[in-house]
Amino acid sequence: MGDTANKNVLQLRDVKKIFSHGTIDEVTALNGINLTVQEQDFISIIGSNGAGKSTMLNVIAGVFPPERGGKVIIDGDDVTNLPEYRHSAYTGRVWQEPQVGTASKMTIEENLAMAYLRGKKRGLKAASNKELRALFREALKQLGLGLEDRLNAPVGTLSGGQRQSLSLVMATISKPAILLLDEHIATLDPKTAQTVLKLSKMIIDKEKMTTMMVTHNMEIALRFGNRLVMMHRGKVIVDIGEERKNTLTINDLVNAFEQASGEKFDDDSVLLSHR
């Protein structure tokens, strides 16, 4: 690693996002985000509903551009105004709902073949072949779900947990610069959620992925990652590094929130949620 260990993978500079501009429904979803993500960071992002977590991931993934003046720089390239399909050369993403990240009528093999070509130019070569199938089997094997023997099964026949695990493999198989996990275990049952979370950790460690994980769950945010970011009303209000993070408790987080935001913490769902 050496000199690349502290490379900046992602920089957000003064990123703002306003929805329904100039109407009565105007919402400032992001209000000047400045964030630098270094190589192999694993950042947990927490915040209440409407804090701007998903909007921030959407801007990084290029679903929509930030307001004028904001910048998104990934791997040194200014990608601020690139369309989403060109952002994805840099970002792999797992969505909240398993059905968003996978194509249900297509087979596991076809889904992986699509994912394998992320960031590469698509041409008139066969989408899959023997070597790729071996690679896909290898990648699926590490999940321990038996999916490696079901390459020809339509993805619609898999369970939510299996689909989300497949999404994980699809998001990482082409080794993008950043992995974005957008509450990716929120719709799974508690047991499956733990399994998928463990698989996520395993793949992130193995591939040395730089990761941003949005979660609603403070306990998970504390348990995973080397850095914790708390968002509130479109701003980053707390940004904690590894050493401090390891000693934190949920109560410390609540206090940190109240101190930084000047508001009383009243989001019971965050505390009670066990997912």
């Binding site: 399909y85 990240g101 194509a103 249900s104 994912a115 070509l117 992320r118 590469k120 989408a127």
Partner: peptide, 19 residues
């Protein structure tokens, strides 16, 4: 393949870098 996937899940296809 990208063409067929577009009919199945457009959001995913954009997310995987195909126009």
């Amino acid at each position: 393949l990208a063409l067929r996937a577009t009919g199945d899940n457009e959001q995913m296809v954009r997310g995987l870098g195909s126009d």
